[in-house]
């Protein structure tokens, strides 16, 4: 919808940064999430698959050129793509089902990308919500659209939240529903030398979807936020938290969090019986 090319180039930087930074603790089996949004586990698994796929024809083709560097067999290969002379030729986000089931089909969806300008996004969305354009869409009445969805992934998440926050402030009395999930992004990489070998990388990036609605939403749904909680959010949450606090019967003392890593095992041992996760 907006500036797709800017997004792609942004992703490239993303990768080179990955390549530069060493990830010492990376293992295939560990589901540790790298801070930049690459799930090491899934990424490597996918990777191994696609590697074997890609190297098959490459091996046949490259008999005459045995010096050609083959994709490295060790995980994590994804983090080194940029250095190995691979170029990204294509990036597609896999279609994922709408995070808000039961939403009318014509709802305005703002796809926030890394390079999107907030003024462009907000100018468009505000005009639609305030009804100056009077277009057909989901739940249109005299006063413009009733609902809008902001979605963004990866580095655009912050911008997505900012857009939603600005709209809440400007429009007022909007009900909000926030959903978080992983989004799978498929990237096709091509070797820059020869271009015979190609591989597909599946990355998972965190994404956020924020539904803003003039009509009431289900308050029981996780991630629901009633209107005008800008300042009341903390008071409300404090109530929730104090309830849970009493439930686990722990003193509220100023326990030094920083000391936790040292007593990790001990805590695990004594704590498991208190509240077994089911």
């Amino acid at each position: 919808m907006f500036t797709a090319c800017g997004m792609v180039s942004g992703q490239n930087q993303y990768l080179t940064r990955d390549a530069v930074r060493p990830h010492p603790g990376l293992e295939v089996s560990r589901p540790i999430q790298m801070e930049n949004g690459v799930t090491a586990g899934t990424c490597s698994v996918y990777h191994d698959q696609t590697y074997s796929n890609a190297s098959q024809p490459a091996a046949v083709n490259n008999v005459s050129n045995p010096l050609k560097p083959m994709p490295l067999p060790v995980p994590p290969p994804a983090l080194k793509l940029g250095q190995e002379g691979f170029k990204k030729v294509c990036r597609t986000e896999e279609d994922s089902p709408c995070p808000f089931p039961g939403l009318a089909s014509g709802v305005l969806e703002m796809r926030v990308k890394e390079g999107s300008k907030i003024r462009n996004l907000m100018g468009f969305a505000m005009a639609r919500m305030q009804g100056e354009m009077g277009v057909s869409g989901g739940g249109v009445s005299g006063g413009g659209l009733r609902q809008v969805v902001f979605t963004g992934s990866g580095r655009a998440v912050t911008k997505t939240i900012t857009c939603a926050e600005i709209m809440k402030r400007k429009v007022g009395s909007l009900h909000q529903l926030t959903k978080l999930r992983y989004k799978v992004v498929k990237e096709v990489w091509e070797s820059s030398e020869g271009g015979t070998s190609e591989m597909t990388v599946h990355r998972t990036v965190p994404s956020i979807s924020i539904l803003l609605s003039k009509d009431p939403l289900d308050p029981q749904e996780p991630g629901y936020q009633p209107p005008e909680t800008l300042s009341a959010l903390w008071e409300e949450r404090e109530g929730v938290k104090s309830a849970s606090q009493t439930a686990c019967k722990r003193p509220l003392g100023p326990l030094p969090y920083s000391s936790f890593p040292h007593c990790k095992r001990v805590c695990l041992g004594e704590g498991v019986s208190v509240n077994p996760p089911h």
Partner: peptide, 11 residues
């Protein structure tokens, strides 16, 4: 998948 998330945003 046992754990659930409920996200709120604020300024």
């Amino acid at each position: 998948g046992v754990l659930q998330l409920a996200a709120n945003t604020s300024t």
